[in-house]
Design a binder for these strands. Structure first.
Lengths: 192, 192
DNA sequence: TACATTAAAATGAACGTTCATTCATTTTTT
DNA sequence: AAAAAATGAATGAACGTTCATTTTAATGTA
């Protein structure tokens, strides 16, 4: 187990502060001075770790997306059956979106805003490949509908984001029963 | 047919300019001066129509949401069967999101950002009532799954937003065949 | 060990710019 | 000639970013 360097701590504090401030106030109301204050460092220090504000946001986006993907494929193995594999990934994503609310909300905001470079977006998308592979396998086995992966994603994964948003606005309470309900709807919408 | 007053024209021009600029650059890069220039009026004039920037954004949001809802229920009548009624509403929404891209993108950005007041959000949600009523009717008739309307929305309507986003980023081309495919998946996910 | 020297990291006041908003004045409409 | 609508330069606050200076860590010396 390695002791993180002070620099790592500062960078991490910056990333956390950025996520929190952008979540609460939006990009336009997350000034560098506030980010620095929340991270417990001086404004000037930000520029030792990031080129500028745009670069800070992009990097935070890519890192959060990576941590999301890591979570999504936790305990998933490619030799799983298509159905079991999908269930594992889907539920991982659901847990992430409902438990790691800060990170998930940040992603949802970034994914719907022009504030992220197209390059960083592409970068963030790469890690989802295993899910696409699983779907192709399912299609070859005649288990998964013969439609574009965008369609499969739209109807099975993307809905989780909506439920998270509603839960976050206290409009809807997602019990574990509801999560199972939602999983069944997701699987039902992509299986043949 | 009434001739719109000049004031109406100016207000409309402001609304259009706000939508376009927020879409292209995000809220943080849509300064009042640019909005005014794009609308062809002077910066000071904005304040004859809107209290301040926050108020401008909120009002534009509520108006676009209203225009979205009007579109959604176009040619829909409450005496339709549940299935026909849902198809009409769903396809209206799909047409809106794929054709009125500017407005749809603006909504998608607003719905995922803290830049909109909770009050304006509530206001914007009100107009969707007929769809909720239709779902309740469908549930009473044993046609629609006995789950929360949030769940039904998440799995049948919300996916359209994702497809619009992908289409907008030139990652996915939604032909009319794909729209029918998507409709079938939507109906399939909420029907019993 | 204790001190000296150098290098690296961090600071925060200062800078130039941009922004939302105002209001004395001008233009347009009644 | 009065009222209403529109203007746009001016204002002050806030922002992102810089850099001369200070603080902290690392290395060398005896």
């Amino acid at each position: 187990m390695s002791i993180p360097s002070k620099s790592q701590n500062k960078r991490e504090a910056l990333v956390r502060a950025t996520i929190k401030l952008v979540n609460n106030n939006g990009f336009h109301a997350a000034p560098m001075s506030k980010i620095a204050k929340m991270a417990g460092i001086s404004p000037g220090t930000i520029y030792l770790y990031f080129e500028n504000k745009q670069n800070l946001i992009n990097q935070v986006y890519v890192e959060v997306k990576a941590s999301f993907s890591d979570f999504a494929f936790m305990d998933y193995e490619e030799h799983f059956s298509v159905e079991k594999g999908f269930e594992k990934i889907w539920k991982n994503i659901a847990i992430f979106k409902l438990k790691e609310v800060e990170e998930a909300m940040f992603l949802s905001q970034c994914d719907n805003t022009p504030m992220i470079d197209e390059a960083s977006r592409k970068e963030g998308l790469k890690h989802l490949q295993p899910l696409l592979d699983l779907w192709v396998r399912g299609q070859n086995e005649g288990i998964i509908k013969q439609v574009s992966p965008y369609m499969l994603y739209a109807f099975s994964i993307y809905p989780i984001s909506f439920l998270m948003n509603m839960q976050q606005r206290d409009l809807y309470e997602l019990s574990s029963t509801h999560v199972d309900e939602a999983y069944n709807m997701a699987w039902n919408s992509i299986k043949i």
